[in-house]
Simulated scan of single mutants.
Amino acid sequence: MLTVNDRTFQESIRTVGVTLVDFSTPWCPPCKVLKPILNEIADAYGEKLAVLDVNCDESPEIAGEYGIMSNPTVIIFHDRQPVEKLVGLRPKTVYESLLSKYL
């Protein structure tokens, strides 16, 4: 999982392919539970998927641009376009099911 910020976000989103972005904060308990799940997903999908982490406290511009109002929020991008948005902690199978539509 690659940590990005307001300055590096746009260049880190895959132009072609799928990018999963975790918008979270380090003090959020559900966010702490989600991190290992997303690391497992990143390891399982390897090069087929880019997984990015955005700290909303440190990157308020990009969080605001995507309407992040609650943590954690996961947005799946396909070819640089947001296609799925999940607010709150979900089971790993939910993320995998959504990713399967785009991979």
Score class of each variant (00 low, 15 high):
residue 2 L to Q: 12
residue 78 H to F: 13
residue 96 E to S: 04
residue 103 L to T: 12
residue 71 N to Q: 15
residue 81 Q to C: 10
residue 86 L to R: 02
residue 1 M to L: 11
residue 49 L to P: 06
residue 41 I to T: 04
residue 61 E to Y: 10
residue 63 A to M: 05
residue 19 T to G: 00
residue 98 L to E: 12
residue 72 P to F: 01
residue 80 R to G: 08
residue 27 W to F: 15
residue 29 P to R: 02
residue 13 I to R: 03
residue 24 S to K: 10
residue 22 D to C: 04
residue 5 N to C: 10
residue 56 C to V: 15
residue 23 F to A: 03
residue 31 C to Q: 03
residue 89 L to F: 13
residue 15 T to Y: 15
residue 23 F to Q: 06
residue 49 L to Y: 07
residue 64 G to N: 11
residue 103 L to E: 05
residue 59 S to Y: 02
residue 23 F to V: 06
residue 60 P to K: 09
residue 80 R to T: 12
residue 75 I to Q: 04
residue 5 N to D: 10
residue 94 V to D: 06
residue 81 Q to N: 13
residue 5 N to S: 10
residue 74 V to P: 07
residue 84 E to Q: 09
residue 95 Y to W: 06
residue 81 Q to M: 13
residue 41 I to A: 03
residue 93 T to G: 11
residue 59 S to A: 08
residue 22 D to F: 01
residue 18 V to P: 03
residue 62 I to Q: 03
residue 6 D to F: 00
residue 81 Q to K: 15
residue 29 P to C: 08
residue 69 M to R: 15
residue 23 F to D: 02
residue 95 Y to K: 02
residue 43 D to A: 15
residue 30 P to S: 11
residue 10 Q to E: 14
residue 4 V to D: 04
residue 100 S to H: 09
residue 99 L to P: 06
residue 86 L to N: 00
residue 69 M to Y: 15
residue 75 I to G: 03
residue 85 K to N: 09
residue 80 R to I: 08
residue 29 P to A: 12
residue 48 K to A: 13
residue 24 S to A: 14
residue 68 I to E: 01
residue 59 S to T: 05
residue 49 L to T: 05
residue 76 I to Y: 07
residue 73 T to H: 01
residue 23 F to P: 00
residue 28 C to V: 09
residue 89 L to H: 08
residue 103 L to D: 04
residue 67 G to I: 02
residue 93 T to N: 13
residue 53 D to T: 11
residue 69 M to C: 13
residue 101 K to H: 12
residue 25 T to W: 09
residue 83 V to R: 09
residue 99 L to R: 02
residue 19 T to Y: 07
residue 93 T to L: 14
residue 52 L to G: 01
residue 92 K to Q: 05
residue 2 L to M: 14
residue 81 Q to W: 10
residue 83 V to E: 08
residue 83 V to M: 07
residue 69 M to D: 13
residue 66 Y to V: 03
residue 45 Y to W: 07
residue 88 G to M: 04
residue 95 Y to E: 06
residue 47 E to F: 12
residue 13 I to V: 13
residue 46 G to S: 09
residue 60 P to S: 09
residue 29 P to L: 10
residue 68 I to T: 02
residue 53 D to F: 12
residue 4 V to A: 02
residue 39 N to C: 06
residue 95 Y to T: 02
residue 43 D to C: 12
residue 8 T to P: 00
residue 41 I to D: 00
residue 70 S to A: 13
residue 46 G to C: 10
residue 39 N to P: 04
residue 61 E to V: 11
residue 75 I to W: 05
residue 89 L to I: 10
residue 75 I to D: 05
residue 45 Y to P: 07
residue 77 F to H: 04
residue 97 S to E: 14
residue 84 E to H: 10
residue 26 P to A: 13
residue 45 Y to V: 05
residue 60 P to V: 08
residue 57 D to G: 10
residue 55 N to Q: 12
residue 43 D to W: 11
residue 95 Y to M: 01
residue 91 P to H: 01
residue 50 A to N: 01
residue 38 L to G: 00
residue 16 V to H: 15
residue 57 D to W: 08
residue 7 R to Q: 14
residue 94 V to H: 09
residue 12 S to G: 08
residue 49 L to K: 01
residue 25 T to P: 05
residue 35 K to H: 13
residue 39 N to F: 07
residue 42 A to P: 00
residue 60 P to M: 08
residue 13 I to S: 06
residue 95 Y to I: 01
residue 95 Y to F: 12
residue 73 T to C: 03
residue 97 S to Y: 12
residue 50 A to C: 05
residue 18 V to Y: 00
residue 50 A to F: 06
residue 21 V to I: 01
residue 97 S to A: 15
residue 62 I to L: 00
residue 100 S to E: 11
residue 65 E to A: 13
residue 20 L to Y: 11
